[in-house]
Write a protein that binds this DNA or RNA. Sequence first.
DNA 1: CTCTCAGGGCCATCA
DNA 2: TGATGGCCCTGAGAG
Length: 340
Amino acid sequence: MLELTISAETEEPRDCKICATKNAGFNYGVQSCNSCKMFFRRALDTSKMITCKKEENCNILDPEGSKCRFCRFHKCVLVGMKFIDSPQDPSAIINDLLHKDWTRNQHFLTGKAASTVKFKDIFERGVFLFEKKSEDTVFDFYEWGVMNHLTCINFETSLSFMKYLSKSDLTCVLKSSHLLYMIFVTAWRSYTAKKEFMCHPDGSDIFPSEVEPSAYNEKLINEIRCYLLSCLICLRVTEEEFLLLGVIIVCNPGIPDLSQTGRMLLASYQSMYGQTLQRYCSFKYGSNAGALRYLEIISLSTAIARCHSAIANFSTLFPIHQPQHVKVNLFTEILAFLIK
DNA sequence: CTCTCAGGGCCATCA
DNA sequence: TGATGGCCCTGAGAG
Ligand SMILES: [Zn+2]
Ligand SMILES: [Zn+2]
């Protein structure tokens, strides 16, 4: 690879790009010393989230700053250390997603949100514990809705790359991509239940009962209920395609307010999952049909975005058409945060 | 063979 | 005392 970027002038070409140690070799694709190489590898291995105690801009060259694991790791990413072993085994990736998705679905079907869950925690950490729901519990719209949000966010934050993101980047991802992902999951769930319109597992509506459909444009309501689902039916989307497209949506690097390292991390993972989807398609449908199929699956994200904007429109119209029914609860707080 | 680099073991350091 | 990180070694692969 051509090295066109000129870093600080005092830096010798053989210095470690992260900590400036002399006589560094090549590790993970960049000029780096052995310590930084090992640090990077161990940082990738750890299951714990790394955080910065200061402002996420510690100077690694100064002995105080070099103690910050978060900032050192992010400098590794920033200078271009490759954090994905290439190429990945597609079936291992799919199995990992299958397992995470199964967990999400179990929580959604059998759990209920712990009463301790508060709005301000949801988009900060995105990890929740669920309590067992008793057999005869009947959820109303808002309880289903909150569970749908929490279990999807739980899934999103359990993805392998999320632990590398800073807290603010994590919030950006959840704020921009979570609702798209949740819409897709809801459509998928209705699709696997062979429904013709989106609904909750017990068949209840995806609109709260106080919504008076006749007060709205029928096309708008239909777009929310049916449009995306009809695309899934029409394409006969497989579970593998659902899983991979779901992650591709969650690791969209084009969302606003991301840090540069956050964008780089998401872009690499999105491209890795994209390649996996491509390989899956060409394996399942053959090389030519697979390439077309890949594009068709990717273009589902347009249908998801269309449903998203219909929901945004609806939630703008709702307080205008039915001001007497506006409620404030956890679900409406979450939705208000996501649609802005 | 030599060179480079990924990865693992071992041990010093520090809360 | 357990987590962390630096030093040194090994083995695989390329040339
Ligand atoms: Zn270094
Ligand atoms: Zn820091």
